[in-house]
Design a protein around this nucleic acid. Structure first.
Length: 642
DNA sequence: ATAGGGTTAG
């Protein structure tokens, strides 16, 4: 009789345990887990280590962020904790962005060997990941000695974690040593090192490693392509002070690798698409970007938030703001990235009011802005001349949203004020802001001095700018422009001379135009195109026709004191005019022409493109260094405010 | 159990 009861009790208990285990399998949120936990406490009179481990393990593996206090309470409530449970808690801290606690717990674990808890290869690889994230090389090295003492040196996962730890802490040499010492490194061991090379921008080292890898998988290809793509992006690579040409080379290398990857029969996925789209965005290659979009649709790669944001960004940066807006509307889920990209896109196209409206809508929908969102907003105000609204944004940033403005935000404000002609106010802001002004701030101010023809303020700004960036030709040219506007030719000559003395190379202005998915590039006076003759004939026709319509060359925007005819000749063959002539020649009437210029458009080109858009009835979209100009029917979307 | 992804001033 007694035996029979026991058997039934055991059966029942087993049934409940199975029920709990299967409930845990379907647990998706912390709330659900709390319910299962409550059920466990109510029904399981005795402790079950297996189920406890499962409870904690499920909690830690939830796709949503978890409450670490609850996880820890769960962990502390277990009377007997085995290695697996300890490891799970270490993992919980690691995943919840609290690696410091992972390390602490690891050391506590070492002290608990009386409970027959012993560190294993899982504990070690987790704690190395934690050290890596903390950049704590000293602890990492110390724990490295545990590996040797405990005999885990040959473990593949431990070795891989060691590589990552050393690499993240900046000791690439040690990381390489570990890799070289491995008898059978697998793909992941190589990939973690590859990722770290790319992260620190060591693309050459990354590529060398990539070349000597015994095999390459999707992650390897995506990593190296991403490496080139991110270096090719002017925004991120500025810190590394690469030139435009280098950016372009890196972008093209990314595209080349994308091609090689397909030749190697590795099927690109959404991650690959993100890199390729960012390359299209930075090159301004709309045709290529559209092809990527089609590829995504054809291969049924779902457009999630990240991919959608990337597509949106590509369209905006390639000048196709309509498709950018369409993409934005199509997305069901938008986060602060998506909204910020849209705001920035509208800002760069000169749609200031729409950018502000977009921000309001974002707030209504409960999305919290971040510091980047405010860069977009302020830049919208600056491109559209919205001074008061700019101040409101700037002030609301700290008052309403709790951000303290960074130098980028001050830079935008300086630009807003300066462009609007409030030079003294801009100068005062530079003086009082809590940052030492950087080159970008001075350049913005100097640009404003140029627009408003203030030689005195320009001079002071230039001294500061040249101290910070003595090797950038554009800085000299900016001042040279200001001098020549004021007809101070002796100063212009002086500047030229000092440029020559310092051996500063001029970056030539160049413009490109995409025809049939091929990008053609022109420099000023370019005769290298096979159809050069036709292009110049076209250009002559264009100049004739716009002159009939009232265009007069703005020779004041030339930088040399030569005679009027020479000035006109120099202006007439500016790269953007050549690119447009080629566009008119090769694209069907009525179709839009998209031009990309590496520098800012000069005033004469801006004026003549307005006329061309009217005479030839074309939409002409120009992306210059700063923003987009949409020319149509004789006027420009910037309303001459740039 | 370890590896890869989207926004940033002119």
């Amino acid at each position: 009789m007694v035996d029979c009861l026991n058997v039934n009790a055991i059966r029942m208990r087993k049934g409940i345990e199975q029920r709990i285990a299967s409930l845990l399998k379907d647990t998706k949120t912390q709330k659900q887990l709390l319910q299962v936990h409550a059920f466990y406490i109510k029904t399981c009179s005795s402790h079950n280590r297996f189920l406890q481990a499962k409870l904690l393990g499920t909690l830690v593996s939830l796709p949503t962020p978890i409450d670490l206090h609850y996880a820890r309470a769960l962990f502390d409530s277990f009377p007997l904790r085995d290695t697996f449970i300890w490891n799970t808690m270490i993992r919980a801290y690691l995943y919840a962005q609290n690696p410091q606690h992972s390390v602490t717990l690891y050391f506590q674990m070492l002290l608990h060997h009386d409970e027959h808890v012993s560190v294993d290869s899982f504990s070690l690889s987790l704690v190395f990941q934690a050290c890596g994230r903390l950049l704590d090389w000293e602890k990492g090295t110390k724990i490295h000695t545990h590996v040797l003492k405990l005999g885990f040196a040959p473990d593949l996962f431990v070795q891989t974690a060691l590589i990552e730890m050393y690499a993240k802490c900046g000791h690439l040499d040690y990381a390489c040593k570990v890799l070289d010492s491995m008898e059978e490194p697998d793909l992941v061991s190589y990939n973690v090192l590859l990722v770290e090379y790319v992260r620190i921008g060591e693309i050459k080292m990354a590529h060398q490693l990539f070349n000597r890898m015994p095999q390459r998988d999707l992650v390897s290809w995506n990593t190296i392509i991403h490496g080139y793509a991110s270096l090719g992006d002017v925004g991120t690579a500025h810190k590394l002070s690469h030139t435009d040409v280098e950016h372009r080379q890196q972008s093209n290398e990314a595209l080349k690798l994308f091609h090689e990857m397909q030749v190697a029969n590795v099927v690109p996925d959404r991650v690959t698409m993100l890199s390729v789209l960012s390359v299209c965005a930075s090159l301004g290659a709309l045709g290529m970007g559209k092809m990527v979009h089609e590829y995504i649709e054809r291969n049924e790669i779902g457009i999630d938030m990240k991919l959608g944001t990337s597509l949106l960004d590509m369209y905006a940066k390639c000048g196709d703001i309509d498709n950018a807006l369409r993409m934005f509307e199509l997305l069901d889920h938008k986060d602060v990235f998506t909204w910020s990209v849209m705001i920035m896109g509208l800002a760069n196209h000169g749609f200031g009011e729409q950018a502000l409206a977009c921000f309001s809508k974002m707030i209504t929908e409960g999305i919290k802005p971040n510091d980047v969102t405010f860069i977009g907003l302020l830049s919208a105000c600056s491109h559209s001349g919205l001074v008061d609204k700019g101040w409101v944004c700037f002030k609301s940033m700290s008052c309403l949203y709790g951000f303290s403005p960074q130098i980028e935000h001050y830079g935008c404000m300086v630009d807003i004020l300066g462009r609007a002609g409030l030079l003294e106010e801009a100068r005062e802001l530079i003086r009082t802001m809590p940052f030492a002004p950087d080159a970008i701030v001075w350049r913005a101010f100097l640009g404003a001095c140029k627009i408003h023809k203030n030689v005195d303020l320009a001079q002071e700004a230039t001294l500061n700018l040249l101290e910070l960036e003595p090797h950038i030709d554009g800085n000299y040219l900016l001042l040279s422009n200001i001098y020549s506007q004021a007809k101070k030719w002796d100063r212009v000559v002086m500047l030229r001379r000092s440029m020559k003395c310092s051996n500063i190379q001029r970056v030539p202005g160049s413009s490109s135009v995409e025809v049939d998915n091929t990008v053609y590039e022109f420099v000023s006076g370019d005769k290298s195109h096979p159809k050069s003759l036709e292009i110049y004939e076209m250009l002559e026709e264009v100049l004739d026709r716009i002159q009939c319509a009232g265009y007069e060359p703005l020779t004041t925007s030339t930088v040399q004191d030569v005679d009027e005819q020479e000035k006109q000749n120099a202006l007439a063959t500016h790269s953007e005019k050549l690119a447009i002539a080629y566009g008119l020649l090769t694209t069907p009437p009525g179709s839009p022409i998209r031009i990309f210029k590496n520098l800012r458009v000069c005033e004469d080109c801006h004026l003549s493109i307005k006329f061309i858009s009217k005479v030839y009835q074309r939409k002409i979209i120009v992306r210059d260094r700063n923003r987009f100009h949409h020319f149509y029917g004789g006027s420009c979307s910037c309303r001459d405010y740039w």
